[in-house]
Design a protein around this nucleic acid. Structure first.
Lengths: 207, 207, 207, 207
DNA sequence: CTATAACCGAGACGGTACGTCAGGTCTTCGC
DNA sequence: GCGAAGACCTGACGTACCGTCTCGGTTATAG
């Protein structure tokens, strides 16, 4: 079947490009909430209608703009040792989210609180891929027996991302190398103590 | 020391009451972002200026309104067993955050992304007390040796709250009794596997 | 030269029409000061911005609305006799200014006291044309020798309008047919008496 | 009948003084419309209630403040010649109305357009006395036969004040010595020309 | 010489309108 | 026939004053 191009002028990829670029630039200057569609249109040299035609709201534009810059840099560590891999991975994720660009993540989460449709899109297009990267490392470690393979994969991922995201959004704790180390170490070994009760608690893996 | 009351008419506690009540009611109907100061003022039978005079923005009003309902119901479980206590506590926290009222929490976190001053206030007035409740349970368990008392208390708290908050905000996973169970269980025992490597990893507490 | 129409949507003449009509109607109900831009916008089914975009303040809108109704009814009397013409003209002017619509004149004069820009516009667009009508009658009479053609035309016009406007604004004297008669009669003959001194005063036209 | 002083604290003349002084000062800075009761109260170091207690609106305060400065300087010229007296009188009135303080007159006239009660008060307390001063000069001249004593006194006064007030409010003509001269001269001799028709018109006083 | 008024300053209050801003839609014209 | 330009309606913003209503406190007359 041939691609039947509709008559008339085609969607201008230049415009799309300009819109995303302008949005990205604005996102570096101020939070998403303070950005207006008019500002994007003006900076991109584009009519507001053109934006509304292709995106439901500025949040979707921002997400597209954000994804455009993300889809390159992903290096999945594979040292053969789970703890080292996870620490490295969590550390690099932290450092990105702490960066000016990465902070936009919080804005997307914020937007997700009031726009469920956007939330779903954000989950599929941003979160899932990001989680999958960690998932790959987990899978390898599980296969090697370094991580309990009876655990719910999603739950483990939530333990990887949850504390970090919490610190990112509330800003009550550090997001550095040491934090990554402590998190992974604690997560691997659990918080249970050494008393009989604790031993019972941790007994699952003891003969 | 003498309480020097300022001259002039005193702040009307009736108005304050009406404002907080109206805000709370509106928060049950729609998200904070869709609530306007004018709507609050109108519903409370109050002038807009009265609101702007005492609160910097509607988010602060909402926080006060929210806190007013929170400062009652807190029951700290104390069964003598860490796992049971934590599961119960996490479960009740989850069920609150999943409730119509509790969902406001997400809105506050959203607001915190663009208003750092509000973020600080939210942390102090809402998060810290909430975390402290969990902290009490942790302390007891640490004293009993059920939880490793060498761990950073804040980190453990982030592991308690992080995964739950993540699910709350993204909505990708359940927040029910089973989830609470799984989370606490995993957190206590860690995710490390049974291989030598894993044993090394978890070896800290093994002779 | 080609009329270069700017791009984009054109100014809506329907909105303009609606705004002026609504304003006119409101002016019949209450004084300009009690009219709000919001009321005009609401009654015209128009956004406030549309009003602010094209007029600096409600006074300018009111002036436009007022002028729209004025630019029809002007009949310049020409009986061939100055006194008759002037009495008729002054009488009709009086009766208009005394009418509900005409009372708006006072409001414009009031507005002129605090907005010099408006004052200038009001002078050019309203006062000058109105004075010119009287000027035409004066010119004819001067040509016929019925009125001293050495007099400053502007001064004579001020004598025609001044007393009437004063009574209109202060409301201390009548504005009826008899008043018009008395005013014109007095103006034509002067107030000087019959004594030698007066004769000297009025002697200019006596041999 | 005895003056029954009511019980309780008496009206503070200091406050009244302060209010009027502050108002007068503000009136020199900006038009009445731009002055707020709050500004007066603040500048006078007085509560708003004290102002509202004694005056219905700021216009009344302003009128009182204005009258306080007026009730001194009145010199009624009496050279024995009507034209000279009138020119001098009109000239001095003009120069006052053109002064910064005198311009307030226009604001009072403006206020009168929308507050009929104020209009009445302004007429009685300000206009009437001012007109009476001119009336005195007219009476003398009428007695001397220099001015036609069959004329309506009020009408003549309107011819004295009308043109000047018109120029004051619209600003389309000068208000100086020359203008005063021209006005009085024209008023005394009338505007009628020299043709038979004009003579008929002016014939009243010619045998 | 105490009690009772009426006044006063301060300032919070319920309102109304302000003039601005951005959202999202609609219309015109140029490419 | 798409898309820039831009005018439109809507609704909320945060501010300014309005005129009223407490407050705590200060005179002044009356008993």
């Amino acid at each position: 079947m041939t691609e039947l191009k509709s008559r008339g002028r085609q969607r201008s990829s230049e415009s799309e490009e300009a819109i995303l670029t302008a949005t990205l630039q604005l996102l570096k200057e101020k939070p998403l909430r303070d950005i207006t569609v008019e500002a994007i249109a003006s900076k991109a040299g584009v009519g507001k209608m053109t934006i509304y035609k292709w995106w439901p709201s500025k949040a979707y534009v921002a997400l597209d703009a954000f994804l455009k810059t993300m889809n390159k840099m992903v290096v999945i560590p594979d040292t053969g040792e789970a703890e080292r891999d996870l620490v490295e991975l969590l550390g690099s994720i932290m450092s990105f989210y702490s960066s000016p660009t990465g902070r936009i993540f919080g804005q997307f989460l914020a937007e997700s609180q009031t726009d469920r449709e956007f939330a779903a899109l954000f989950l599929e297009r941003f979160m899932r891929p990001r989680r999958e990267v960690v998932g790959v490392v987990l899978d390898r470690a599980m296969k090697r027996g370094e991580i309990d393979d009876t655990l719910d994969r999603e739950l483990v991922l939530d333990f990887m991302f949850g504390p970090m995201v919490l610190r990112l959004m509330i800003g009550h704790g550090p997001l550095n190398k040491a934090a990554a180390n402590a998190m992974i170490s604690t997560l691997l070994r659990g918080i249970g103590g050494t008393t009989p009760k604790a031993r019972r608690a941790s007994g699952r893996r003891l003969p």
